[in-house]
Write a protein that binds this DNA or RNA. Structure first.
Lengths: 218, 218
DNA sequence: CATTATTTTAATCAATTGATTAAACTTATT
DNA sequence: AATAAGTTTAATCAATTGATTAAAATAATG
């Protein structure tokens, strides 16, 4: 039987190496190929362990996926709240940090956006519940700050929903299209990274220009 | 045996109703759930036919998926070439028509972007080959037009790659996040549609403001 | 060291999967 | 109507799947 609750054996910090190996293999495969496309045997091979061990440690494929999904969610949204609710920073600074943070994050985990997008599509209510997205955005200091700013008072006022959609869209787009972009433009990993890094300064500029003034209709 | 080549029976235009039913069921399921998550029996049930008929008409699940994928690709990219290569329209007009066309298209086929994104990730080279994307973009009249315009000559000149990424990102974003956006903001289908329709005029304005002038660094 | 608890393994299970087959049924052709 | 060609069906196959089991191997405990 598996040591479940308070066990006495801890070789060192005891995050049983095998358990960890399985979870990491699962995360790699689930994140890049999705739930149904990955078999428990695939995971076992990737982790270099016996297939039965997967069930020994995680009961079922579903349970393991659930864990991976929650990990990916917190990886994707972790830290956002503290940026959005920082009382010391301006709107402009928030946009900058947010974009920069995500570009760095996605540079290390390029499969994350598509994984998240698939979860959003296949299970939106679960997605919303597991995160505090609703409060994360709607009750954020960022939104309050924006609604009280000149931006939302001017006649050029823009629905903040558009703003959020744009920020996310502009940031995720190059990662979602990465394989095609790289292939067509013949960019190696390094050149692609500089392209993406450029956007750290560009996106905030674009976002602010959207909200500051509209070009006159000709 | 199946009537393959030139058959003599044609009730009317003879796109055998069953064959069509299967293909439509397959498209619906494959597009929303992906290849591995859908079984041939799922398709049979959705189409209201016997499972063996699927193989009778399409040989294998893979072949059927291939057909659906190509159909989706041409659905997604159809008409783009004629917009990009129109010698009569200005850059501004091209951006406007492109955005408007896609917003209309995706409003009717909201699952398309994620399906395409998944294909891009899992099989980029096939994706590029099946389409003429490379020529579609790199050799388009649009690009030539842009490179010769004031936009690319000014000191504010912007890598056109960013422009294309932005256009796509801004257009697709609300559809990729649709379920969450609708849930959080409590938008019904109709209100979501007006939100998206607003972007038909907004996105071209944003795109042009990006390329026209940069806000000064403070 | 002996005993017990934990971890790992190989073998196997039942269910599901894509695919095939042979017979039944329908439609067209003469 | 008789025959042939095309279509549909139910039954079945072999392979793969997630999951279980019981025994073996390893580590911990007294």
């Amino acid at each position: 039987m598996k040591k479940t609750t308070t066990s006495k054996n801890n070789p060192r910090t005891d995050n049983t190496s095998t358990e960890q190996k399985i979870k990491e293999a699962a995360r790699k495969l689930f994140t890049s190929k999705g739930f149904t496309a990955v078999t428990t045997r695939d995971i076992a091979v990737e982790a270099g362990i016996n297939q039965a061990l997967l069930h020994y440690y995680f009961r079922s494929k579903e349970k393991l996926f659930e864990i991976v999904m929650l990990e990916n969610l917190s990886l994707f949204f972790g830290g956002v709240s503290s940026i959005l609710n920082n009382q010391q920073t301006s709107i402009e600074q928030k946009v900058e940090t947010l974009v920069a943070t995500y570009i760095d994050k996605l540079s290390q985990e390029p499969d994350l956006p598509l994984f998240i997008a698939n979860q959003v599509q296949s299970n939106p209510e679960k997605f919303i519940k597991n995160l505090g997205i609703e409060t994360l955005i709607k009750k954020s200091f960022f939104l309050k700050q924006f609604m009280e700013s000149d931006y939302s008072k001017s006649i050029h006022s823009l629905n903040p929903l558009h703003l959020i959609i744009n920020m996310i869209g502009l940031t995720l787009a190059p990662f979602l299209g990465a394989p095609v972009i790289r292939k067509i433009c013949k960019l190696d990993q390094q050149h692609f990274m500089t392209l993406v890094q450029e956007r750290k300064t560009l996106i905030p500029q674009w976002i602010l220009s959207m909200v500051k003034k509209r070009p006159e209709q000709k």
